Simulated assay, not measured.
Amino acid sequence: MHGTERAEVGTPPAAVVVQIEPLVLRLPAAGHVLGGINRQTVSRLIAEDELEAIYVGGTRMVLRESVEAYIERQKQKARAARNGDPRVAIAA
């Protein structure tokens, strides 16, 4: 060591924080991820096979990957509609 540098003895290393994204979401949380839609709309999307849900301990949960896939499909539909693709049906 040089000059005024000094090692702190017994100082623990800095904590590493790892944030893990959940694999499943409760219906209200899935709605929040989808821009704040309500629980009933999330249930409708599940019934229409737009979102995939499973039961965990008796609670219906939406698979996060299905939310991400739904968002990607909506983005593709929006892009196609902007580009004038006549095969894209825009839901009202």
Rank of each mutant, 00 (worst) to 15 (best):
R6V: 12
A69M: 12
R64D: 04
Q40A: 03
R79N: 11
G10W: 06
A69G: 05
P12A: 13
V67K: 00
H32E: 13
G3A: 04
T41S: 03
G36A: 00
V24Y: 06
R73Q: 06
I37P: 03
P12G: 10
G58R: 10
T59I: 15
R26P: 13
H2K: 08
G58L: 10
V16S: 03
R26M: 12
E68M: 11
G10S: 02
A81D: 13
V67P: 01
Q19N: 11
P28E: 12
E65L: 15
N38L: 07
K77W: 04
E21S: 09
E68I: 09
P13Q: 07
S66N: 00
R79Q: 15
P86F: 04
R73L: 09
G57M: 05
A47M: 10
T11C: 15
L27C: 02
L51G: 01
G58P: 08
I54N: 02
Y55C: 06
R82F: 14
T59D: 13
R26D: 15
R82T: 05
L25C: 05
V88F: 13
A92Y: 15
R39V: 10
E50S: 06
E50R: 10
I37V: 12
G31D: 01
E5V: 01
H2R: 09
E65F: 13
V67D: 08
R26W: 09
G35I: 05
V9P: 09
G10Y: 04
N38Q: 00
P28R: 03
Q19V: 15
E8R: 14
Q19K: 13
R64V: 08
A80N: 10
E5L: 09
G57E: 07
I71Q: 05
I37K: 01
H2M: 09
M1P: 04
I71H: 03
G57R: 08
G36P: 04
A80L: 11
V24A: 14
M1A: 11
R44W: 05
V67L: 07
A91F: 10
E48H: 15
E50Q: 11
M61H: 08
L25Y: 14
Q40K: 10
E48N: 15
A47G: 08
G84F: 15
G36Y: 06
I20D: 11
A14N: 04
A80F: 07
L45K: 01
R79A: 12
P12F: 13
A29V: 07
L45A: 03
Q19S: 12
V42M: 06
E21R: 10
A78R: 04
A69P: 05
